[in-house]
Simulated assay, not measured.
Amino acid sequence: MKISHYFELESHVTGGIHESVVHQRKMLDRLDLTYTTEPTLEADVFHCNLMGPRSVWYARQARSKGVPVVANTHVTAEDFGDSFRFTNTLAKPLKPYLEWAYGLADALVCPSEYNQDLIETYTETPTTVVSNGVDRSKLAGFESLEDEYRERYDLESPTVFLVGHVIKRKGLKTFVELARRLPDLDFAWFGPLDLSLKGRETTALIENAPDNCTFTGYVDDIRGAYAAGDVFCFPTHEENEGIALLEAMAAGKPVLVRDIETFSWLEDGKDCLKVSEAGVDGFEAALERLRDPELRAQLGSNAAARSEEFSLEAVANQYQSLYEEVV
């Protein structure tokens, strides 16, 4: 079986979508499946990861030639807003476009049950939930970088941290306000800033953050983030799954999340701590609890154990089954 595993705009798209594609290709290597990253209909399956105009063109051609089309639903209108400049404006017309584009596929891959529920309001195309997975090999040896990264960014334990693009949707306002309310704790957000792509409100939040809130920008070795951070605080308002969350769990870090539907699979008090309040108070109270090193250790250990079901080894066979089904 040969797969055309296409990622439109591959050299430009970063963040979770890029990581998901990297994970998929590692899984294809593990399965020993033949694949090309070029778009071609000389394949048994055309698999696209971003439904841009070129992917749509190939998907339409594939359907006319009887080549089954598989598409990942990384992008939703709900997830698109509050990200970069102009994304709120584009989110509204994006939904009807995606309804049409996802409807061209024979099978859709959704990273979570929450995402699946959303996509089933877009199209009647059959959906399958397959996690983006977590690449444990990517984290190997992260502990050895603790001293280097704490010194580089002047961080003291316990450090509250987050990993990923700095965007409003991921709870930027909450993160900054928490740092302001808890000045004796260090807060660090590891990930690209891309200020030229941010709206005025996002830029103001970053530039006016208190001294104990560090935005590192791009880091050359993301393992350093998991080495220097002690509590993964993820107050995101909307998420399709959250690869950084899975990585933090795999690294044995206690996680604090907003109680949104995406994270319904996490058990509060066992796998993580959840905050249901709309404001900052609940997060502040939870961080006060997480000053306790014993609680951090217990939640981190539970998180690491729970993350095992999302390893690439555990997820890979789901792609094998899906390809066989559509063929």
Score class of each variant (00 low, 15 high):
102 Y>L: 04
132 N>I: 03
146 E>L: 01
131 S>H: 08
70 V>F: 03
123 T>W: 00
63 R>V: 09
119 I>A: 08
144 S>A: 15
135 D>A: 02
79 D>Q: 15
68 P>D: 09
85 R>S: 11
91 A>H: 04
93 P>E: 08
114 Y>L: 00
115 N>Y: 01
65 K>Q: 15
75 V>C: 12
73 T>D: 03
129 V>M: 07
102 Y>C: 04
136 R>H: 08
151 E>A: 15
60 R>T: 13
103 G>F: 00
69 V>T: 04
117 D>L: 11
69 V>I: 07
109 V>M: 07
143 E>R: 12
135 D>N: 14
146 E>A: 14
98 L>V: 11
103 G>Y: 00
109 V>P: 10
140 A>D: 14
141 G>M: 04
70 V>Y: 02
130 V>Y: 04
138 K>F: 04
125 T>P: 02
139 L>S: 11
90 L>M: 13
134 V>C: 05
125 T>A: 06
111 P>I: 06
61 Q>K: 15
139 L>H: 08
120 E>K: 14
84 F>G: 00
92 K>W: 10
137 S>P: 04
122 Y>R: 10
142 F>C: 02
108 L>T: 07
150 R>I: 07
132 N>D: 14
72 N>F: 06
76 T>A: 07
124 E>S: 15
97 Y>M: 13
137 S>A: 15
79 D>S: 13
70 V>D: 01
146 E>H: 06
105 A>G: 11
113 E>C: 00
73 T>K: 03
150 R>T: 09
147 D>Q: 14
137 S>V: 14
70 V>Q: 01
75 V>W: 06
99 E>I: 01
108 L>Y: 08
115 N>V: 14
79 D>G: 01
85 R>E: 14
125 T>R: 01
114 Y>Q: 08
80 F>E: 05
147 D>W: 07
122 Y>F: 12
88 N>E: 12
68 P>K: 09
121 T>H: 12
127 T>A: 12
64 S>N: 13
75 V>H: 08
130 V>H: 12
127 T>M: 04
124 E>A: 15
80 F>Y: 15
115 N>F: 01
114 Y>K: 06
95 K>F: 01
67 V>A: 07
139 L>D: 07
99 E>P: 00
88 N>V: 03
75 V>F: 09
108 L>C: 07
146 E>V: 09
82 D>Q: 13
96 P>H: 05
111 P>R: 06
68 P>G: 10
130 V>R: 12
77 A>L: 09
122 Y>V: 10
123 T>P: 02
60 R>K: 15
142 F>Y: 15
97 Y>I: 11
140 A>S: 13
129 V>C: 11
114 Y>E: 08
61 Q>I: 01
143 E>T: 12
101 A>M: 02
109 V>F: 11
107 A>R: 15
121 T>C: 04
145 L>W: 06
84 F>K: 06
134 V>W: 03
88 N>Y: 01
111 P>W: 02
97 Y>H: 06
103 G>D: 02
118 L>H: 05
